[in-house]
């Protein structure tokens, strides 16, 4: 990373810290904000957060690794989270997943080479009454079938 980029990221994190509070209790919010903007929390960002909250970098990494929605490695521009829990599974989620994998040429847990899409499985999205469901960049899509799902995926920039 260039020094200039580092400096601006540092400034951004400093702003987040002053917004949410300079204590460990702000960790979830600060990391959530970084994740939202960059799609992941870089090695440098993790250390900056640790420095500003006066905790150890490994504690930040440990925290990130605990939560499914936080990442310490770069993700694709679009995050597709397919529910694989029982209700969606019963309504054919695995079939849709297989078609999406084929369409994108990657497996769940992977990112397309052009960084357009990352596929992830997730546990119950709370949309069991209109299963199958998936989250795309935080937005919920329900009552999916293969056609619908592929259309949504293909429309992603």
């Amino acid at each position: 990373m260039l020094t200039l980029e580092k400096n601006s990221l540092s400034e951004e994190i400093e702003e987040l810290v002053s917004l949410y509070g300079e204590n460990r209790g702000s960790l979830l919010e600060i990391l959530g904000a970084i994740e939202k903007k960059y799609g992941y929390i870089s090695e440098f960002a993790q250390q900056e957060v640790a420095r500003l909250l006066n905790i150890h970098p490994v504690e930040v990494y440990s925290f990130i690794s605990f939560f499914s929605f936080l990442h310490s490695k770069p993700q694709g521009r679009n995050m597709v989270r397919m529910c694989k829990t029982i209700a969606c599974n019963m309504k054919g989620a695995d079939n849709i997943s297989a078609v999406i994998e084929k369409e994108l040429g990657i497996k769940f847990g992977e990112t397309t080479k052009n960084r357009r899409v990352t596929l992830e499985y997730t546990n119950c999205l709370g949309m069991c009454d209109c299963a199958p469901a998936m989250l795309v960049n935080g937005k919920i899509y329900t009552n999916l079938d293969v056609e619908k799902a592929i259309k949504i995926i293909n429309e992603l920039k």
Binding site: N23, G25, S68
Partner: peptide, 20 residues
């Protein structure tokens, strides 16, 4: 906002995550 962890529905785990 949580970040994707079922166990945080357990009240003390929820509190832990709120404390960072």
């Amino acid at each position: 906002l949580g970040a994707g962890a079922y166990v945080c529905g357990e009240e003390t785990a929820l509190i832990e995550s709120l404390e960072g």
